[in-house]
Write a protein that binds this DNA or RNA. Structure first.
Lengths: 202, 202, 202, 202
DNA sequence: CGCTAACCGAGACGGTACGTCCAGTCTTCAG
DNA sequence: CTGAAGACTGGACGTACCGTCTCGGTTAGCG
């Protein structure tokens, strides 16, 4: 993360052992039970070695997730927008499941009070997904599936929002039919003619 | 929380001192820096007294928030649905601001890995707001501002979702115009005619 | 102990329950594990009631021992001095056995850093035994079994000393033959003619 | 005590600071007031460091005493047995004085209900003194000052016993003349001819 | 024979110390 | 002369008892 002292001499085998140990321990006790001490012991590595390359346990987990789930730079494009959006959302639902042992959720929880981690999380895991998502919508605008003036930021909020809403409030991820309903509503909102003023006054 | 050993003999003055100390300390160092030890010291109370009545620091903070922001059982009803929704959302935005020292956010973060706390949080802070929200929408259905078959759960997800989305990803709360835009989109989605099937297939 | 607030109204049943609970708990976990809280709970009595009548757990245990092992004011007198001494010493050995769960040993340990308890212990348990012991020796002087000028304080030290020596150093109580040997040596010391000065110089 | 995890890396400066703090605090408040917390604070050391190397506060105090008062392996030998015994006993009297703040007495009190500590105490403080004592008596046998068949264990009991007797019962250590009298009696007992049977029957 | 003072149980309270855990830094030693 | 092993300070954790302190609810004995 951030500035490596001297990446040239970094031991790849230690790095792998640390990430592997992190994955195991995360699976065993969940993110909450995870400690740097335990990672070091399990990986057969000194704590110092971990602190040398990562600023916090969150950063280690972040790197783990980053490796595991790298995003295709190119969005899926089946021709059907709803289908592709469903695929994109489903991937995120996968990351946020199961509620009590998902490393991603642990990471998000930690990032809530660690701005540095939050920044890394956003840059490395979130932004790529957002970019992919917007790219897909942009293509939909090009093909006329969405109006050219559709607000993509609003679309982002409306589509991903429910997932985080439900994560934060432990409400359970939307089931497939609810997910389809959400997508349908959002597409309708983006497509429907602006009813002259509605809530735009102010 | 839940079943007090013998609430009758509970010292109200200790309880008040604890909540006051919690509020102060939360303001000073944020939820993350808050410790039971510090609360006890500041409140002039023994740790045992805290543990006797609350299972965790999260529970104390929850009670603090619960007292501070009790919800009117009756939703606002100015006649204009968008206005009332804006008011409801703004209240939650207030709870989730500022990002790095809001006790509510700390609480949500903690609840992510503490199911007991999550349950209390949901029951005591969240559900009342959801109920109020749905009640307002129900009235809107009665007055014809919303179709009778509008899916209120979807409305909930679409309106509150963006707030938690932005909280979780440290994206900053929506500014007023963005908020209005969100509300307008959602109302459009709920009101617009279902375009024959769109994404309902499956 | 000492000044009861108003002994008249004291509940005998509580007193008995407390002593009984103390005995049980002492047997279960040893003196070290004994706590006022546990006594109160087991006896179905409030802690206040214990503190009202006894200044410390040591005092409770002392009263327990005092009741259990009251000394005959009159020493045994079989005619044979060694036999009677053996009986007196054996009684004390009984109190100091078994090494790790004897309430008496616990009490002595506590008295080592509690002068008040030490005083009570001496007055109520020890002095009566010393008096009895000396009384027996005095009779032996009268019958000529011991010289009239035998130093009874030295006899006390030499005969009881080894028991406390062994208790303090966890060396195990003397077995019967060793005990007899000790008695024989001491009687010889008291009876033998003073070898003109020997160690009396100074 | 016993098996250090890896004594090689142990910080000698911490060890010294801990023992020094222990000595100070013992002097200030007596063994009873001594706590691990206070030692750690005074020594500028974390509690963990104390618990890493010693199992209990007793063990720390034991090490302190062990360093302070190491015994000459060779007993004093002035030629006069009584003189040398008086010296040996006086050293122990020094350890057991003053009654209410002697660390040694605190240690003995603790050992009464802590078998592990008792064992260490015996092995590290007591046994060496016993060995020295017996060695001196053995020499006395060689020079004919004591009969070859004198029972050295009995001598040990009779000479050291009174000290522990008086410690346990808070009777005050013997004054010099009483001490001389004790020694004289014991030497007489060991030297006097066995009066045909006396208490040897049984 | 009813008042009132002390008892009683229950257990909450402010405290002190316990022994454990983990964070993050610093030191030692082997390769 | 690097890096693993791990000892170190620091500080919060949650627990156990301490001895004190209300609470109501009996009793007991005096007036």
């Amino acid at each position: 993360m951030s500035k490596a002292p001297n990446a040239a001499r970094r031991s790849e085998s230690s790095r792998r052992a640390i990430l592997a140990a992190t994955e195991e321990l995360c699976g065993e006790g969940g993110y909450g039970r995870l400690t740097i001490e335990a990672i070091a012991t399990r990986a057969g590595v000194s704590k110092k070695t971990i602190y040398r390359w990562w600023p916090s346990k969150g950063a280690v987990v972040l790197e783990l997730l980053d490796e595991a789930a790298s995003v295709a730079a190119n969005p899926p494009d089946s021709g059907d927008l709803a289908t592709d959006l469903r695929a994109l959302l489903t991937e995120v639902i996968g990351l946020l499941t199961p509620a009590h042992s998902s490393p991603a959720i642990g990471l998000i929880g930690e990032a809530l009070h660690d701005p540095d981690l939050a920044r890394d999380l956003r840059e490395r895991l979130i932004q790529p997904r957002i970019a992919t998502f917007k790219e897909r919508l942009r293509r939909a605008q090009e093909t006329g599936q969405l109006p050219a003036d559709a607000d993509l930021d609003v679309a982002l909020d409306l589509l991903y929002g429910p997932l985080y809403h439900r994560m934060a409030l432990h409400l359970g991820m939307p089931d497939p039919s609810h997910l389809d309903s959400l997508i349908a509503h959002v597409l309708r909102a983006l497509t429907a003619p602006h009813p002259a003023g509605a809530a735009e006054q102010r």
